[in-house]
């Protein structure tokens, strides 16, 4: 079964045609099976992330034919092309630099806002959001995240990754909306979370057709829609999210 794997070593990008050998008749391998076999045979130095092999840890996301897929639980077909996620800078082969996403939330979601009484139950909508495994499939097609790379496309190798991207994404919005649904967070904390969402560029969500979640969370309704509704007319005019 011929599968294309795009590798990047020391900055040099190339496509390797890998011939997957099925382990049983009619096997429809997962992406990760192909990568593990390639590493055990023709490409021993192949770089790729994986963790639990059960779609819980969220680290193995790659692009297949230009769409993000969770490698351990998405199958490939002959002729498929496996590439690193197009939404983040490549470090090597299928490994992208992820930490610019989380770092943008440093200091934006402080614990000081917690209410000391922990014996409060969270609403169902809160638990819907803690299903997020941080696979970053939701960055695909996100106009807010794309702003990070828009200003200076030629020099977009690693914009702000070490300190956190300036502009947000559905994952960061989810983390903020989760705070807003947490019964143990004070009203000030909820307000700070909304302010952070607006500062990260929530205005980019106005009129957007919506984002798609890797594990099926309703991002458009449960996250973006709620934040937009709460922000209301604070998003009118383009000054809301400028530096």
């Amino acid at each position: 079964m011929k599968i294309d794997i795009v590798t990047t070593r020391n900055g040099v990008r190339e496509t390797v045609a890998y011939d997957y050998r099925p382990r049983q008749d009619g096997e429809r391998p997962m992406i990760l099976d192909v990568l593990l076999q390639a590493q055990a045979t023709a490409l021993p130095d192949l770089a790729f992330r994986y963790g639990c092999r059960a779609r819980n840890c969220g680290v193995c996301t790659v692009d297949v034919n230009g769409r993000p897929r969770i490698a351990c639980r998405a199958r490939v077909r002959a002729g498929d092309r496996i590439e690193p996620m197009a939404t983040l800078p490549v470090l090597a082969d299928l490994v992208v630099r992820r930490d610019g996403i989380a770092r943008q939330l440093q200091g934006r979601t402080t614990a000081d806002h917690r209410d000391p009484d922990l014996n409060e139950e969270a609403p169902e909508a809160y638990h819907d959001l803690t299903a997020c495994i941080e696979c970053y499939a939701c960055l695909d097609g996100c106009p807010m995240h794309a702003r990070n790379f828009a200003d200076d496309a030629a020099d977009a190798a690693l914009p702000d990754a070490a300190t956190g991207y300036r502009w947000g994404n559905p994952f960061s919005l989810l983390k903020l909306q989760r705070l807003r649904l947490d019964p143990c967070v004070t009203e000030d904390g909820r307000q700070a979370a909304l302010d952070a969402a607006i500062d990260l560029g929530l205005d980019a969500c106005v009129g957007c057709k919506g984002c798609k979640c890797g594990v099926g969370i309703d991002l458009k309704g449960g996250v973006v829609g709620e934040l937009l509704a709460a922000a209301g007319d604070r998003l009118s005019g383009d000054g809301a999210s400028a530096d």
């Binding site: 059960a54 779609r55 993000p68 299903a131 890797g214 099926g216």
Partner: peptide
């Protein structure tokens, strides 16, 4: 069981199950 969970039937991107 919770309505949406990692790897659950509502999963939109990975489609193994």
């Amino acid at each position: 069981a919770p309505a949406v969970s990692p790897g659950g039937p509502a999963a939109a991107v990975a489609d193994a199950a």
